[in-house]
Amino acid sequence: MKNNNNHQLKLGILITAGLLFFVVSVYLLGKQQNMFSSDIKVKAHFTNIKGLQVGNNVRFSGINIGTVTDIHILNDSVIEVEMAIEKEVTKFIKKDSKVEISNDGLMGNKLITINPGNRSTLGISEGDELLSKNKITSDELLEETKNIIMTTKTVAGNLKEITEKLNNGNGDFSKLLNEDEITSNLKKVSGEMVGLSSDLRKISYKINNGHGDIGRLLNEDGITRQANEAISKLDSIAFIGQQTMNNLHKTSVEINEGNGVINKLIYDTVLSYKLDTTMVKLNQGIDEAKQAASTIDNSWILNVFSKKDKKRDK
């Protein structure tokens, strides 16, 4: 009887261990599929679900927060995917969050990734519809890769053509690469440049040491001082000149607009006429004076006293 009990105990332990493993496995798998946590149902519409299946994970910021519970076709271009999301994380998933279908690694299962929405919007609630975002598929990726390869091929062809031309052609670049003439010319030029730089060094040495006019100009203060003095004198002259100009301007204004003699001489035609008349009269007066003088000179009275002189002159 004791032996029988012992057998039963061992059997009980074995069965309990086996059932425990089964229960733990069921619990872990159930937990993974959110069977033991309260959740809410939300949906999203896609044009292509890319092999997504019921039971695939829903991930938010890298954390599994739910599973796909149902997939059905609404019409010829819209597929509705229903997801169960853990209730406790719904406050973090905003109503404007976007969902996309991704891959768990390169070879992993498909999954739905929820991208965070705007912080100011409210968290999702039962029956909400999340916006979907179409991600590039592997086929599209391959197509893009194919295009890149084709472009690269074309570029490589062009490069090959260019290198062939560079190797065998007669263009400037080809000559630059293949002929020595340019190099020797460059060498010559560089030799000349060396000489030139030596001359320049000598010149700069002289300038630095104050030789010559430029050197003195750069190194001595006296010239600057003299130049400053000359400039200040020029300033004074310019000032005087300015004053003179002002005076002249004033005088010319006075001449043009004033009542002086010169203004009248220039602009008064009556005065001019009078002056002409005066001049004529003066000429006449002078002629008459000359005639009078001649008359006096020839008069006998005066010649009486001047005979001796006439003889002396002869």
Binding site: L14, I15, G18, F22
Partner: peptide, 13 residues
């Protein structure tokens, strides 16, 4: 019928 599933579960673990 009872023990083989239990043994399989234990073998799996």
């Amino acid at each position: 019928t009872i023990m083989v599933p239990i043994l399989v579960l234990l073998a799996d673990a």
